[in-house]
Nucleic acid binder design. Structure first.
Length: 584
RNA sequence: GGGCGCGUAGCAUAGCCUGGAUAAUGCACCGGCCUCCUAAGCCGGGGACCGCGGGUUCGAAUCCUGCCGCGUCCGCCA
């Protein structure tokens, strides 16, 4: 399978010999990418297609492949088997080499994953709005962002989690006035109980029909921005109660975000005039009906006129582009970030492109900074529409998570009735939450994906329950064995059966797949890989008895394979932010 | 109108960056496998003109280009 079996370590191990064999065959020029993953797994792990060499060597691809094979085959003895098939040289790792790699992984807590040159990164994700409900849109940002953070940290980077909470702006006049109308204690109770939607809607409803209320709201915004102490205190009540609720959701989801990671819009308030003055000094600002704007160039509106980024409105207020630029200043100059990552929905693509362009033009960032909008698609229902509740409203994230846990619990009760209620609840949480997160992480993030309970909670296919089940089965084997984990470091691997070999070649790829998943900011690649491991394990499990094998050495070798498989699955799931119970 | 993205079996998705052999996986469908470590599983089978047309190439799902369809964004909301 292309993608999960790239065998980068094998490539590393054979590349010099391959280059020598190619040279001996007379091939010249840039041959660096000729050696690649085999596309047909039965043929081998790596392949050299020889067709492009035919013109210069004036021989047929079949002949070339055969002559390369005759040179390569002896020189790769003990590493891989080499064969020529219809113009391809196929290279297949042999059992001894695989066994040697597994022996290296067995004592390695990191399973081959290396520490990289450390970078400093800010990952901007989750970003709910104060006094507004969290919905499925926040789910993707939170879950994908968290997985990327975990992978980066595991690779040794310094990561600033930046929860860019919407805690500032004109709606807060209205929200504070509504807070006063309700009475502080009542309002705090309501917010604290998680009824954020109700609170916001009541405020919005009054704002839409009550002129006095509109007037009060406007005045309140002015007081808020002017730093009036009592207003700020009330504002803080809204923020604190909302955050208390958000933290509950984060706890439920099992993400890393805490109060320490909150960097709401209000935190950048002091930098907004700074943004304006810097752009002004660079003479980048232009006047547009009294507003200060910058034209990054390259974008036009409906009429074909250049599209500006609005930095300061005619009334003196600031826009979100200004805050985003202020963030860049803060993250680059205060935090010293090399990586600025924004896990935000794809619809904001143009906005970020424009902001990044302006930041570059203003010298806020340069070529040394990796600035990346990690965009993601929408969550759709089975009709291909944006997922909404029956009433046509955004679905509350908590409701969705609760339903998933309930569904998981029902499935467990049905299939494993003997398990005690406390354990069942814990396992249900791991499975239910894991299923939602995995469903989100396992599809290519830039595409929309269709939300489907039955599929994500299925124990078949590319789902977290399937991976968790494979892990639980292995734990069960160890419970029945007289061997305790961690295992001895020096257990020899015996790779004889095809199922053992397939599992081995998957396990050996773990670190390369983690790297690839991170470097493309694509958690789904790690998911696809983990599924291939679990699937290879399931085949192994069927055809290679572990505990009931007569031969002690084979038994230990298979236990070690089980151990590596379990550790690979649990490490991989941990990197994705998903729990991995020992029983199901 | 312009920008960006998407289009792969009945359904849902990988593969596209970095071109290679018979396009992979799961669901659904058909047929097998539990006196044996969790059958929540495994093995086998049928099912795809990779949206359509050009181009580049020895070779295109993959790169380029035109078209069609869908989504999304396009100046004072974030």
């Amino acid at each position: 399978m292309h993608g999960v079996n790239q065998m980068k370590i094998l490539k590393q191990a054979v590349k010099d010999e391959v280059a020598a064999a190619l040279a001996k065959a007379g091939a010249e020029g840039d041959l660096g990418n000729l050696l690649g993953p085999a596309t047909v797994e039965e043929h081998g792990d790596l392949a050299i297609p020889c067709h492009s060499l035919a013109p210069s060597l004036k021989r047929s691809p079949v002949e070339i492949a055969e002559s390369i094979t005759s040179v390569l085959s002896p020189s790769l003895s003990g590493i891989a088997e080499v064969s020529a098939v219809s113009g391809f040289v196929n290279i297949k790792a042999d059992s001894a080499w695989l066994a040697a790699r597994l022996s290296e992984l067995l004592p390695d807590e990191r399973l081959g994953v290396l520490i990289e040159n450390p970078r400093v990164a800010a990952v901007d994700y989750s970003s709910p709005n104060v006094a507004k409900e969290m919905h499925v849109g926040h789910l993707r940002s939170t879950v994908i962002g968290d997985a990327i953070v975990r992978m980066m940290m595991h690779k040794g980077h310094t990561v600033h989690r930046e929860n860019h909470v919407g805690d500032w702006g004109t709606p807060f006049g209205m929200l504070i006035e509504h807070l006063l109308d309700l009475g502080e204690d009542n309002a705090a109770d309501e917010l604290g109980m998680g009824d954020l939607d109700g609170f916001y809607k009541q405020a919005r409803a009054k704002f839409n029909k009550d002129e006095m209320f509109v007037e009060r709201s406007r005045n309140r915004v002015v007081m808020l921005q002017g730093g009036d102490e009592e207003t700020l205190r009330l504002w803080r009540v809204l923020v604190d109660e909302s955050m208390r609720y958000f933290n509950e959701v984060y706890g439920m989801l099992g993400v890393l975000l805490t109060n320490d990671d909150i960097m709401g819009e209000s935190n950048y308030h002091h930098l907004l005039p700074e943004v304006v003055s810097r752009l002004e000094n660079l003479e980048m600002l232009e006047d547009s009906d009294g507003a200060k704007v910058v034209y990054p160039g390259g974008w036009v509106n409906r009429e074909g006129d250049p599209l500006p980024l609005i930095i300061q409105k005619a009334d003196g207020g600031y826009n979100y582009a200004t805050t985003d630029l202020a963030c860049i200043i803060d993250r680059v100059e205060r935090l010293g970030c090399n990586d600025l990552l924004y896990v935000v929905g794809a619809p904001q693509s143009q906005h970020f492109k424009m902001v990044f362009e302006v930041a570059k033009q203003a010298g806020l960032i340069d070529g040394s900074h990796n600035v990346n909008h990690i965009k993601f698609g929408s969550v759709l229902d089975s009709d291909g529409k944006i997922l909404k509740s029956r009433e046509g409203e955004a679905i509350k994230l908590v409701d969705l998570l609760n339903e998933s846990v309930v569904r998981a619990e029902q499935a467990i009760a049905q299939r494993n009735p003997s398990i005690n209620p406390k354990q069942r609840a814990d396992i249900a949480r791991a499975i239910g939450i894991g299923a939602v997160k995995y469903a989100d992480l396992s599809t290519e993030r830039t595409k929309d994906y269709i939300f489907d309970w039955d599929r994500m909670l299925s124990f078949d296919g590319n789902t977290s329950p399937y991976l968790q089940y494979a892990h639980a089965r292995i734990c069960s084997i160890f419970r029945r064995s007289d061997v305790s984990r961690p295992l001895r470091d020096d257990i020899p691997f015996i790779i004889e059966h095809a199922e053992e070999a397939l599992l081995a070649r998957r396990l050996v790829n773990f670190s390369a797949m983690v790297d690839e998943s991170l470097h493309t900011y694509s958690p789904h690649r790690l998911c696809t890989y983990l599924h291939s491991v679990a699937s290879a394990f399931a085949s192994f499990y069927e055809s290679c008895p572990v505990l009931s094998t007569g031969d002690d050495e084979i038994r230990m070798s298979r236990l070690a394979l089980c151990d590596l498989t379990a550790r690979t699955l649990s490490s991989g799931l941990t990197l994705l932010g998903i729990d991995c119970p020992e029983q199901m």
